[in-house]
Amino acid sequence: MNRALAAALAALALLLAGCAPSPDDGVLIEDAWVREAPPGARALAGYLQLRNRSDAPLALLFANSDAFDRIELHQTLHDDGRMRMVEVDHVPLPPGETVVFAPGGLHLMLFAPRAPLQDGDAVMIELTFSDGTARDLRFEVRDVRDRR
């Protein structure tokens, strides 16, 4: 009886231990997508939302993918009627806050897709964070043209 209970507890402890250090407890990632681009386009944009659920400040450092030549973190800036696209070194993720990569603002600049990407396709992009964790994330390719 005691031994059975001990075994059950040990199993439970193992199970919990397996769950505990999951990176999901750090950053919650939602709505990851890539804008479908015209055929032949050499640069695409990826968007997502990152919520830092921990108590510590984090940052997104890099993005990598086999589906693209390389990826940079970019920010579209508007000043005085002019648009500028600048590369950012990292994207700070303050504790408890959600950082949104969205059209007209932050985006993953995806250079030279290795294969044509169409609506409904998916690409895997690995995100590396300042706490040393890396997450392999599925981005869905979306055609967001307004068809009327």
Binding site: R35, P38, A41, A45, M83, M85, G104, H107
Partner: peptide, 13 residues
């Protein structure tokens, strides 16, 4: 055309 964010948005609009 190497502008993946704003230019597609404007063209779409």
């Amino acid at each position: 055309t190497h502008c993946p964010d704003i230019c597609p948005m404007t063209l779409q609009t």
